[in-house]
Amino acid sequence: MLDTKADPMYKFMDEERSNPAPSSASDVRPAGKPLISMENIWKTYQMGVEQLHALRDVSFKVEKGEYLAIIGPSGSGKSTLMNLIGCLDSPSKGDYWINGNLVSEMTDDELARIRNKEIGFVFQTFNLLARATALHNVELPLIYAGMRAGERHDKAQAALASVELGDRVGHKPNELSGGQRQRVAIARALVNHPSILLADEPTGALDTKTSHEIMELFEKLHEEGNTIILVTHEHDIAERAHRVITIRDGRIESDKKTK
């Protein structure tokens, strides 16, 4: 007999049918709790017979409206942590709560919903769709949120205007400068009003002057009430945040309020 439950090909079908929202009451935290709560998070990769611990017992909390930088050298587990925060991956052990949702136990499609609603990604290489216009790129999260075309269009337009690209909506990424592309990416990250703005080396591909502009934009967004998590290996970028977590060898080495 064909077991549709066991076969991974059919798995998504079941997930589509079931309610992706947390089902039991115990999964929902009461209001007033931190926006992000990581509790004893481990991420372990099996490399043949050896176990590689990318993250070892990491715990921290992020309140709404914080401006946090996560800094660490390459290989420190910083990228793994970012993937976990961004719900692109699940921890091997430990609980991760974001905005009242226990995401560490979620299936792929439930994670997709969280990525759509709670996280706004900004990448080092922008990651815009090359063939799509700036407007369509910004519309992307709204499409997957199921928003209708008219409303989506207006929202994307407004988001682009807020990063001062209201006159570049019809341009494709290759018709924009690096700084403009990153601003499109930021508009895209913000358009669905996520809980956190998660930026991975957002200035890594930009020159100093443009980097400066982008960082000023982040500061402005923070002042407007957005929660920002910045992952970087550059100290001068991390210094602009109000709190810095330093990661080394998969552990939190320090967690300091700087402002």
């Binding site: 792929d108 992307l140 949120a145």
Partner: peptide, 18 residues
Amino acid sequence: TKEIGIRKSMGARQTDIL
């Protein structure tokens, strides 16, 4: 593949990509 990655990071579910 890259496009699929971008779409997934923006909240596309497996059914959407499929």
